[in-house]
Amino acid sequence: MGEYRALKTVMLEDVFKFCNNYDSEPLTLSSSALKVVTDFTRRLPQVIAKDVDIDHALFMMVNGHVRSKLVVDHDDTFLGIVTAKDLTGRMVLSIAQKKNLTRNDLTVEDVMTSRRELHAMPYKMVEGAKIGDIVETLKDLGHQHVLLVDQNGLLRGMISASDIARALHMPMHILEKARSFQAIFSIVHNHDELKA
């Protein structure tokens, strides 16, 4: 354990103000969309194996302070995305009942959004876009995330509504859009849960 060392700290009893951050301007909807990209060339994507049970997956997300993970199989092939919201709520019980399983038997693969249902944007398009353009895109899609692909068709990154909200210090309300009867059912039940 000798490779690292604890750094010296100072007491804050005489500190009352924040420093001025002259190097960066506050982000706005007109700022470059690149400011809110999770770029997989700079940071490894948050991934989870498809066969992890949903309780363990939720534990991993909560302890990792993330709201979503990309789902992969054992060959690291991208299969979809799972959010903390997917792992809780009435839809989980509905899926368990439909598959004739108990809740404890469900895996990430059972509740994820598959890649067939996801949308992506070319990374080059994001380079010239504003954060407001991404917000409008997310609203139009009715999704909390949009994935980014490079010119070779590889996953390059992701932008999430929660990252935008955190960067702009403002709430971000993206209404889900139903694309099937099951999605309508899910949205109605999730809306009822929010009211309760």
Rank of each mutant, 00 (worst) to 15 (best):
D51A: 01
V37C: 06
R43G: 05
N21Q: 10
L87S: 02
G64A: 10
D23T: 11
H65V: 03
V72K: 14
L27V: 04
R67P: 02
M60C: 10
T77I: 07
R42C: 02
F59M: 03
D86F: 10
L34W: 04
M60Q: 13
N20M: 15
S68P: 01
F59S: 04
D39R: 10
K35L: 03
L70Y: 06
S68Y: 12
S68F: 11
L70G: 05
T38W: 04
T83F: 06
D51T: 03
V82S: 09
N20V: 15
I48K: 10
D75L: 12
P45D: 10
G80I: 03
A33N: 11
R67Y: 05
V71G: 00
R42E: 10
T28G: 07
S32V: 01
T77F: 03
E25C: 06
K85A: 08
L27P: 10
E25K: 11
H56V: 02
I48Y: 01
D53A: 00
Y22V: 13
V37Y: 11
I81N: 08
L87Y: 01
L29S: 09
S31W: 08
T38R: 11
F78K: 11
F78R: 12
D23R: 09
Q46F: 05
P26I: 10
V37T: 05
A57K: 03
G80F: 08
S31Q: 09
S32A: 14
S32W: 02
S24F: 08
N21A: 07
R67T: 12
T38F: 05
D76H: 14
V62C: 06
H74W: 02
D39I: 01
F78D: 04
T83A: 13
V66D: 09
N21I: 10
L29K: 12
G64D: 01
